[in-house]
Amino acid sequence: MALTTVLEILDLKGLLLFVVAFLVVADFLKHRKPPNYPPGPFSLPLLGNIFHIDSKQPHIYLTKLGRVYNNIFSLRLGRDKVVCITGYKMVKEALVTQAENFVDRPHSPMQERVGGSNVGLFSSNGEMWKKHRRFTLSTLRNFGLGKKTLELAILEESRFLLDEMDRQKVTGQHWPTLTAIRYKTTETTQNIFFCVPQKKEKVEKVQEEIDRVIGQSQELSLANRANMPYTDAVIHEIQRLGDIVPLNALRVADKDTTLGKCFIPKGTAVLPILHSVLFDENEWETPYKFNPGHFLDKEGNFVRREAFMPFSAGKRVCLGEQLARMELFLFFVSLFRKYRFSAPEGEKFNLDGVMGITRTPHPFKIHATAR
């Protein structure tokens, strides 16, 4: 009786070992890499690299891996494989130079269950995506994009915000958070108040330029931007350091191709790491410091930088970029023309940010004082 029980236990263990061995071998065969496929860190059978990634700061971890693997590497996330690309040159190669090959999104079973397949501007592909894109552009133009009417609407919104701030001061209410602004503009506006109060000398230079070009009585206009290179540079540097979309979104290779001498088979999911572009040590003189000089030449004129990609690049570049740039300039100048902003005594800023669909600052307090 005892012998029979022992044999049954051994048979059960043997069966389990066989099943595990079979699954491991099957997993290995299924995920064998083709010749010259991008290298990557060791992945666990069945699970891949899913437990290796820092869930709080994934963009930092992936950027560091990019330095190890010459800006292109592969990961396994469960049963799915993804190729990550980092650094300005590699990301530009995929999104701009090979734009047609990497314009589509990979198939997502979850997206299909939740919202259907090939729907929406973000998730659709092919002709459906082109239709959504044309419709979105048409709608933005109907709302006044590129016209004076939209500029006037943004200025009106900025006046509402200033009036609300004045009202709170008159009634004795403290203005400790960015609740009002959070609902009126973008995450980048939060970063304005997060970065700027810590750079007093740069704020003073911005306000000197505002006073010189516009003054306190002249009507603000987008046309002023051409004569305010330092202010424009500060806004761009805030966007760069703000890094609100550090991971971008997945693309898929439409055909067999190469990136950085690595073979990318058709159907491969590719993830561009925009954080690695905005902090590329080969493109930015002081990538980890707040430095408006990144966007100024020796004469103090504003200069565009190709590695400035907060809105992504190529055919899937954010269609709201022009609107966002209008809002940022008009809100920024309106607020800093009227107020001085400072951090309360003892307030410490957490620079890590909170990762979600976008990266936003941790909650913080700030003082606004009329100039």
Results as ranks from 00 to 15, higher is better:
Gly120Cys: 06
Val119Cys: 04
Ala99Arg: 08
Arg113Leu: 15
Pro109Phe: 07
Gly126Trp: 08
Gly115Gln: 11
Asp104Gln: 05
Met110Cys: 04
Gly116Val: 06
Ser108Ala: 09
Met128Tyr: 01
Ser108Pro: 10
Asn125Asp: 08
Ser124Arg: 05
Phe102Leu: 14
Phe102Gln: 13
Asn118Phe: 01
Gly120Ile: 04
Leu121Glu: 03
Gly120Glu: 05
Leu121Lys: 03
Asp104Ser: 11
Phe102Glu: 13
Ser108His: 09
Met128Cys: 04
Arg113Ser: 10
Phe122Arg: 09
Ser123Tyr: 13
Gly115Val: 06
Val103Glu: 12
Phe102Met: 14
Ser124Tyr: 04
Glu127Thr: 06
Phe122Asp: 01
Asn118Arg: 03
Pro109Asp: 06
Gln98Lys: 13
Gly120Lys: 05
Gln111Ala: 15
Leu121Ser: 02
Glu112Gly: 00
Ser108Lys: 10
Pro109Lys: 12
Val103Lys: 15
Asp104Arg: 01
Leu121Cys: 02
Asp104Val: 04
Pro106Ala: 00
Gly126Pro: 07
His107Phe: 15
Pro109Cys: 11
Val119Glu: 07
Gly115Arg: 11
Ala99Leu: 07
Leu121Met: 06
Glu100Lys: 12
Pro106Thr: 03
Gln111Trp: 12
Gln98Trp: 02
Val114Ile: 14
Ser117Phe: 05
Met110Trp: 12
Pro106Glu: 00
Met110Phe: 15
Glu112Thr: 12
Gly120Trp: 03
Asn101His: 01
Asn101Ile: 15
Gly116Met: 09
Gly116Asn: 07
Glu112Met: 04
Arg105Ala: 07
His107Tyr: 15
Gln98Leu: 03
Asp104Asn: 12
Gly120Ala: 10
Glu100His: 11
Ser123Trp: 08
Gln98Cys: 00
Gly116Arg: 05
Arg105Gly: 05
Arg105Trp: 06
Gly116Cys: 07
Arg105Thr: 05
Arg105Leu: 10
Met110Pro: 02
Asp104Ile: 02
Glu100Asn: 15
Asn101Gly: 11
Ser123Glu: 10
Asn125Leu: 03
Ser123Leu: 12
Gly116Tyr: 10
Gln111Gly: 12
Gln111Asn: 14
Ser123Met: 12
Met128Gln: 07
Gly126Ser: 13
